[in-house]
Design a protein around this nucleic acid. Structure first.
Lengths: 260, 260
DNA sequence: TAGTGGTCTAGACCACCAT
DNA sequence: TGGTGGTCTAGACCACTAT
């Protein structure tokens, strides 16, 4: 802060946190650098280790720093932000590359994508899914496909796709077999559902412990939750995917026409 | 957890946190309920107060609980989520209601909106703004308008709008006077810029201390950051607004046509 | 093995809120 | 005033990483 009378009223842990924040913003501590150890900072500032520890915690909660057990606390390097927009559903992209939207987007950024089908089954849809897909929530009437998405080997997104059973049955969409060229949306087109509109509902929240573990998320990183509904030319919904993305790796970028 | 061998390996603070999580998800602790005090939980579980405190902290970091100094720790009530979409820029909505996009949206949800112009000035645009507005970053060539948005008296969004000086000069856009009927986008239309396309870039991150204070954000709530660019029919950018929204109050809801 | 962060103890005092 | 969360101390042992 610089102002003595103000600083003196601040708890020691916050003063130390502010000092570290300043060093980071001035570049004295660069991304990837290790902070002094808690014990060292405690001794240097004449405070208890727990107080220094609290300072580091404040910074990890802000997403500025990540602590690694046994190694130290490091200034977070901002990974390249991948931006996903509505053109990931483009037919042209699909036909020209034969790739899924995710693969096309990641390759376009000169990184290495990978996706795996983690789980597939026939389930009762959650209420918000049933509502958007216009199916009954009380029957096992949708196929659920859980996909994990990786960039350079690191998991960055988990996508759960729900497809009405009437559409998916007797196709690769329900069987778990390879989806073939053009991936998911090409198979929908085979069934007469060409994706024409997409509704994207976006929220953010902190991950649960399980989500943080699955996506190897450092603390202080929120989850971006995108509920995507695929609609055909008649605006009939035929597919819903809920994406959970690490907000430090992924963002969204939509360009759309404004309603009249 | 229920599984002794697993639970025994979990630290006491996490075990207590999990127990509280379970009580919340079972409804035994309902939104708004106060948790037992740290001292009470410590005694009941035969642990130190700091250990019970750590359990509560884990829950606040997940956004499940908020602690209030001197009062207690409470199960967070999920406020109604407001959804903002591209129709907030609709000319029809504007002309029929005479309201700004924000006002129209909040009133539609039966809540009370309020917005104030906090600051206005002529500045050098930040690099990402200059790039998107296609103006030079080295001159004081954009008007910056900082608006605060309130729902039922609570601040929920801060929007910073940048307008090229050539467009804003000699209009209410630059003077800080009332914008009149139809608000911002009606004034752009006066200048020959009818909003036709909108580009919306969405990311999420934890708030800084200042942002958390300004928006009175409890810990464990991320910030949704939306960079909106307004484009006319020729896809010329004429305005950029960066919204910072409390992710627990606001979400986004876009429906758009998929690119060919 | 030495050094790091992760967890925990058993206290203490302060700041805030309700009564 | 008594109870709450917020901060702090001065230790301790454990779990993990690197050498």
């Amino acid at each position: 802060m610089g102002d003595d009378s103000t600083a003196a009223r601040e708890p020691a842990s916050r003063q130390l946190a502010q000092q570290l924040r300043d060093q980071i913003s001035r570049g004295e501590l660069a991304p990837g650098d290790r902070l002094p150890s808690e014990r060292v900072m405690a001794e240097e500032h004449g405070i208890a280790r727990n107080t220094a520890r609290e300072a580091v915690r404040l910074l990890t909660d802000e997403g500025l720093v990540t602590a690694e057990h046994g190694r130290g606390a490091f200034v977070r390097a901002r990974p390249r932000l991948m931006r996903f927009g509505q053109h990931r559903y483009s037919r042209k992209v699909r036909e020209e590359t034969g790739l899924s939207p995710f693969h096309a987007e990641v390759i376009a950024q000169a990184l290495t994508p990978n996706a795996t089908l983690d789980r597939i089954g026939r389930v009762q849809p959650p209420a918000h899914v049933a509502e958007r897909l216009d199916v009954s929530p009380r029957t096992r009437s949708v196929v659920e496909r859980v996909n994990w998405y990786f960039v350079d080997g690191e998991p960055v997104q988990i996508g759960t796709t729900y497809i009405p059973w009437e559409i998916a049955k007797a196709t690769e969409l329900a069987s778990g077999d390879s989806l073939g060229a053009g991936d998911l949306y090409a198979r929908f087109e085979d069934q007469g559902y060409a994706i024409t509109y997409t509704r994207e509902e976006v929220t953010a929240r902190m991950p649960t412990r399980d989500e943080a573990r699955d996506l190897r998320m450092p603390s202080g990183v929120p989850l971006l939750v995108v509920t995507h509904t695929g609609l055909d030319a008649q605006r009939r919904p035929f597919e819903l995917t809920e994406f959970k993305m690490r907000a430090d790796h992924s963002g969204l970028d939509y360009t759309m026409k404004v309603d009249d």
